[in-house]
Design a binder for these strands. Structure first.
Lengths: 209, 209
DNA sequence: TGTACATCAGTGAACGCGCGTTCACTGATGTAC
DNA sequence: TGTACATCAGTGAACGCGCGTTCACTGATGTAC
């Protein structure tokens, strides 16, 4: 199970040091800010240890940078999930393994993870649409996997999609909870497992009625 | 079913015009901002049509004001829910009625609603703790109501709480979706109904195993 | 292989502006006697 | 009922500061021939 930070996975092409540094610093500052405030361009550069004009060499404004950060995060998430899906150890609870992997991923990339989560639940924006699209995609993959693994009888697909979307939402919330209280890992894994089981059982019960 | 704006319900005591105006304007600006940026004190006052120093008559900083806004929102939400619970029309789907009421409430108080939702999913803060506490409370009320109505067999309470917490999260997400696409109201109500049914059925299935 | 030139990443000074905060003020409302 | 005083809501000028943005510059890397 890979634990590479996404910067390696998603941007193997050489990237200017300054750009890399600005993106990482911005992610850190945005993810760790305690009350909402604009990220100031000069503060970002100061924090990154660069001249404030270096920013303009790579981005024309902060929104553009944020979008780049989100794209990189999404690419890393998808690459990692694809990889981890191919190595599903047989006989284990699927959701435990996947959620476990996601917990690790969240821990390795906590700042981008938190940032993406907040953007996902934030005001409408291009960045938010990117995150939402990635989540939809993730949902589709999950449905396909569950059907392929035979965990699911072929129920009403539209309903399954809706319920899996709930699962995805809540799993990401669990990841955030995990980051805020890493010692609860086992309990949170249980909760994730219970949730998927309940949703699938619920879907089957609704089908019958 | 009351549709009063929360300012009436929660702050019947006379409040200085300026304070009221500042809080409403801040809520509007915060809820409608498209990309995250600090609310500037002077911009707020300008937008409210007041001298920028009026702010200091009522709050010592923006965080304090935000907390006041959140408290007022929560008080209004709870008062409204209590009221609507007492007038539950018999024979209807409980979740449809409650979610329907919540949709109306969200529409009548869309700015505070959106703000509270974003705070809920945002960085740790006193405001966020207030929202979380209100949601926990709401979950307890819901559990009590469902048990009293006999909709639920008395299952494992801890598990019920966890699954209802999921329901609450998702119901609020549905409210946000409703605000962003009011024409989908019927579809979103269906989704809310389906979700609660699935979760309850899932809980019962897990109990049996 | 060497040379000339273009592109690129990063620097540093300078600008005008809106910001948060302070202070001293005004006029209206409430209260004590 | 009237008077004196305190409290309260809102105003306006002034401050120093950090901000975003521009411009002209440097030195390193890449490329054409």
């Amino acid at each position: 199970m890979s634990k590479k930070a996404i910067s390696d996975a998603a941007a193997p092409h050489r990237m200017a040091q300054g750009k890399r540094l600005l993106m990482d610093t911005a992610t850190r500052l945005l993810a760790r800010q305690t009350l909402q405030s604009t990220l100031a361009l000069r503060e970002l550069a100061r924090e990154a240890g660069l001249n404030h004009n270096t920013f303009y060499r790579h981005f024309s404004n902060l929104e553009e940078m944020q979008q780049t950060i989100v794209e990189e995060f999404i690419a890393g998430l998808r690459a990692g999930l694809t990889e981890s899906r191919q190595q599903l150890p047989p006989g284990q609870s699927v959701s435990r393994v996947v959620i476990g992997w996601l917990f690790d991923f969240a821990r390795e990339n906590s700042d981008p993870f938190i940032l993406a989560y907040r953007i996902w639940h934030g005001p409408p924006s291009d960045s938010r649409d990117l995150v939402q699209k990635a989540m939809d995609h993730l949902c589709e993959d999950m449905l396909r996997d569950l059907l392929a693994l035979g965990v699911l009888p072929p129920l009403n697909e539209a309903r399954l999609r809706r319920l899996l979307a709930i699962d995805v939402h809540q799993v990401f919330r669990l990841c955030i909870a995990y980051l805020e209280a890493p010692r609860s890992r086992a309990r949170l894994l249980d909760a994730g497992d219970e949730m998927l089981k309940a949703l699938i059982a619920g879907a089957m019960a609704l089908e019958g009625s």
